[in-house]
Amino acid sequence: MKKFLTAIFSIACTTCALAQETPTSPLEFSGSVDTYYKYDFAKKSNIPTSFVSDHNSVSLGMIDLALKKKTGKASFVGEISFGPRGQTQSIPDAANNNSSFHIQNLYINYDFTDKFSMTAGYMGTFIGYEVISPVGNFNYSTSYLFTNGPFQNAGIKATYKFSDKVSLMAGLFNDWNLYSATRGVSSIGGQLMISPVEGWTAYLNVLSGADPYGYGTIEDLTTSYQITKAFKLGLNAANYDMADDAGGYAGVALYPQVAVADAVTLGLRGEYFKTKDVGAVLGTAYTGLTLTANIKSGGLTFIPEIRLDHNGDKPFTNKTGGAAPNAGQFSLAAVYAF
């Protein structure tokens, strides 16, 4: 064992020294690991948004591994995850397919010019503020808008960058969240990015076509503005209409964040989300308030969070199992990005 450890240590030191000689590596390698503890005030899982599902348990998020390489004008990204957050709790449901992993990104990009590029493959969706990877989110739990919207899109897209302040993307996509299409390349999507002032970026998104529920159109605004050195404000608003008045949803979420120290940022997520009426069945409205802290030390982010949700139609349960209009949870998460 001693010999093995000594050898590993020596090789690691040597490799480190070798790597320092090369200013940049042609192959990018990165990833993350996350784990959490959640306590639900109703003593059972109650809030129906994605991830952070287990009550009173130290549970796993996922391990995520990503590779990227660029050669000339061509590049690829391959990102794969293992664990509940990146596997069974992501879509497509890996467990149902007897698969033990989930592809987060797998695409090839070609920069025809400095302004024009095309990308094909399976990518994180361009819709919405939040993403599957905990590294990309401030809050550890997720919003209703994220849970009900697309997670990923397979397709081909073209992006034209008019300037650093304006770009336009248009693409053709499969139905949401599927590695291969079940109804052909059936969706069309677009994104207009504008950056009116330094620190403010806004994305106007639209995606129309096949989705897991049928056919529909989703319009989405995702924006964030670093207003001062310490204060940042994010906003996500979306409207989703299914074809033939078969339902949909609309909602808005606000993300104010304030840096209180070099390594500590506090953030609030306030969300209003309403499902649409389907015939005689009336839609239902949720409000959610999530207070989160991000405490950073190197690659580690420690995320304590408290969340309170409300719905007048009492979709939640209380400690005794009865219907309740309110739900709450407390969680502690650790996310390490490398």
Partner: peptide
Amino acid sequence: GRDRYSNYVPTTTVATPLEKTPGKLSAGE
């Protein structure tokens, strides 16, 4: 930070002078 497409992009527009002394939590980095 890593964006949704696994590309590394600036996470903020706020730049920190290199000579600034960071807190204990960020000192090593």
